[in-house]
Computed example of a mutant assay.
Amino acid sequence: MPDTRAVVATAHASRYLQQLCKHWAHKFETEFTPTDGRIVLTVGEARLAADAETLTVALSAPDEEALAQLKDVVAVHIERFAFRETLRFDWT
């Protein structure tokens, strides 16, 4: 199962983590606290961790195509919540 991870610099990591989890809670299995989150989407799973300076996003999917789709969907949603700042997702 392919996976990838990005550490995104932001002082609003907890806010974005919680917004993303709440946003998808009506459609997907989610669980979260102010510092950790997990979302099980149809194309894969997202795990998030927030601290004072960074939001860590770890994704896993059944194949590379699904992983690419998941990266795009998660990044676009977080960027919408962070419209006041520019975030950088360097997937590794």
Rank of each mutant, 00 (worst) to 15 (best):
I39C: 11
L41V: 03
L20W: 09
R38N: 10
L87T: 05
A50V: 05
A82D: 11
T54D: 08
V43H: 04
L20N: 10
Y16N: 05
F81Y: 13
A49T: 15
K22R: 15
A75C: 03
F89Q: 02
T10H: 09
Q69I: 10
D90Q: 12
A58Y: 01
H77P: 08
H77L: 10
W91P: 04
Q69E: 15
T54N: 13
T56S: 12
T54Q: 14
E53P: 00
P62E: 13
K22N: 14
P2C: 02
H23I: 11
I39Q: 06
F32H: 15
Y16H: 07
A25Y: 03
V73S: 12
D3C: 00
D72E: 13
T4E: 00
E29L: 09
K27L: 11
A11G: 07
L17A: 11
V7A: 13
L41Y: 06
A49E: 15
L20T: 12
T33L: 12
I78A: 05
A50I: 06
H12V: 00
H77Y: 10
V73E: 10
V73G: 02
A68W: 01
W91K: 06
V57G: 00
F83L: 12
F89K: 04
T4S: 10
L17R: 08
T33H: 10
R5S: 11
P62R: 12
A46W: 04
A6M: 06
L20C: 11
A49G: 14
Q18F: 02
F28E: 09
F89E: 05
H23W: 08
T92D: 09
R88M: 08
F28S: 14
V8S: 05
H26Y: 07
T35L: 12
P62I: 01
V57I: 11
E45L: 12
T33A: 13
D63E: 02
Y16M: 04
L48D: 03
V73M: 14
E53L: 08
E29S: 14
L87R: 07
V74S: 03
A46I: 04
D90W: 02
R38D: 03
V7I: 15
R38M: 14
A82M: 10
R84A: 12
A25C: 05
L67N: 01
E31L: 08
H23F: 12
G37P: 07
D36E: 14
V57D: 02
L87P: 06
R84L: 10
T10F: 07
S60A: 15
V7D: 11
R80W: 07
G44H: 01
L55Q: 09
V7E: 15
R80V: 04
V7Y: 01
F81V: 07
L41Q: 02
A82R: 10
A9N: 01
L48N: 03
R5M: 10
A61Q: 05
G44F: 00
A6Q: 03
V73T: 10
M1V: 10
S60Q: 14
E85L: 11
W24Q: 11
K27M: 10
T4M: 00
L41K: 00
I78P: 04
D36A: 13
L67A: 04
L70G: 03
F32Q: 07
G37N: 09
T30D: 06
F28I: 07
E29G: 03
P62V: 02
R80M: 08
W24H: 15
T54W: 01
P34T: 06
A50N: 02
D72C: 00
T33K: 08
D90T: 13
K27Y: 04
Q18T: 15
A58F: 01
L48M: 13
A6T: 05
L87E: 09
L55S: 08
